[in-house]
Amino acid sequence: MTVDTPVISCRNVWKLFGPSPRQYLAAMPQGLSYESIQADGYIAGVKDVSLDVSRGEMLVIMGLSGSGKSTLVRCFSRLHEITGGEIIVEGQNIMELDDKALIDMRRQKMGMVFQSFGLLPHRTVLDNVAFPLEMRGQDKHDRRERALEVIKLVGLEGREEYFPRELSGGQQQRVGIARSLAIEPDIWFLDEPFSALDPLIRREMQDEFLRLQEMLGKTIVFITHDFDEALRLADRIAIMKEGAVEQCDTPDQIVLNPATPYVRKFTEEIDKARVVHARVLVKPLNGKAPEGDPFPAERTIHQLARQLVNDTRDEIPVADKNGTLLGAMNRQEALDVLLGTE
């Protein structure tokens, strides 16, 4: 498998809830709306979704409650059986796995963090974290060592013998995170991990999470209903509504070019300059010679604001970290992002 093959790839995935969803789906005419399906007594949890998640990428699935985002992520790990379509994880069609192979895949490759933590109340922090290791039959000494390692990683050292009820919400979620990391999964699912936390703690946990991701470089599917959080964390965002994906793109693109009115509603209140990077505004030089010092491509427009206002050039060259020239961005266009178009 090359690096370029997606880790998770799903094609036309359907998940219907109702009396006999498979027959219904088979007989259903194409392009039926969510409402019509509902009128027939079915709920479209996931509606014809196709997505790829590449290695090392963080895909954030954003949507309001009932949009099907949690259902979709549960299809990826086959906590839900899908009604139609196919899901390939690491080259394996997961619907074809038998019980044992599925358990094996979860034991070796997947970790998941839950909104209300899903901790086992009768186990200590240490035993909770070691739980997946225990399930796969690792010996007691090894799993203790590994559990202590991840506990340290999430900053809960010294709390190993506490019970979940003795910890704050943020600490409990650190346990949840530690548990999901214990088996060193390749794929990491996080289902609204910070939604149950206070705003201040949430911010702190997001930073913590970014730090971890920096270190670990996992393939991540992250669920949230908070657009700011999505923008802050995501490599790419998939916005869901009524079971379907409205738009799936990088934060910059979503902010700059919302695909539907629904997506636009989210982007309207956003300070675009803090999201959009210089890189995305770059246009090819077409043989023109760049004038003066290039702007760094990895900075947001907001970070470049001062220079941008003071600069007088119409076309400003942009270069990446290595100094390679990528092209030039139009100053007016950049100022529009910064100040908004009236």
Binding site: R74, D104, R107, F117, G118
Partner: peptide, 14 residues
């Protein structure tokens, strides 16, 4: 709680 159940499944419980 369903989350506890799912946590168990994701931990690869038989």
């Amino acid at each position: 709680s369903p989350e506890v159940v799912e946590a168990g499944k994701m931990a690869g419980c038989s």
